[in-house]
């Protein structure tokens, strides 16, 4: 497949944000870290849209705002879950979740 490397450089920041976010959601131990990582993924998508926007085509800008609004709303919701969870299953230093009954 003929992949255009120019795109990879031009969209490096959104790509990096999405990659960090995806990796963080899967591998971060703490729920706060996972929430932050998901926000990073969403931020990457918003930056990607901002880069696509131009004065003649304002639709990506509107979509970017919508993505940011969804990120804010869901980010707050996820943070609320983190607070309510209150570290109930404690995270050990090895990053593993302890058993519920072992508290």
């Amino acid at each position: 497949m003929g992949v255009d490397l120019g795109n990879a450089f031009h969209y490096f920041i959104p790509f990096l944000l999405c990659l960090i976010g995806f990796h963080g959601v899967l591998f971060h131990a703490s729920p706060w870290g996972k929430t932050g990582a998901w926000c990073s993924f969403q931020l990457g998508l918003a930056v990607f849209l901002l880069q696509l926007a131009s004065p003649s085509n304002p639709l990506p800008l509107a979509l970017a705002w919508l993505v940011l609004a969804v990120t804010a709303a869901l980010g707050i919701l996820l943070a609320l879950f983190c607070v309510k969870w209150g570290g109930r299953p404690k995270f050990s230093e090895g990053g593993k979740t302890s058993k519920r009954g072992s508290r």
Binding site: K34, L77, L78, F81, W85
Partner: peptide, 23 residues
């Protein structure tokens, strides 16, 4: 809350990947 958190996070990540495909 832990189950809700994981479901919301997993589902939202899925939706974000879906959006990445759309974009």
């Amino acid at each position: 809350w832990p189950d809700g958190f994981h479901f919301l996070l997993g589902g939202s990540l899925g939706a974000s990947l879906f959006l990445a495909g759309i974009l």
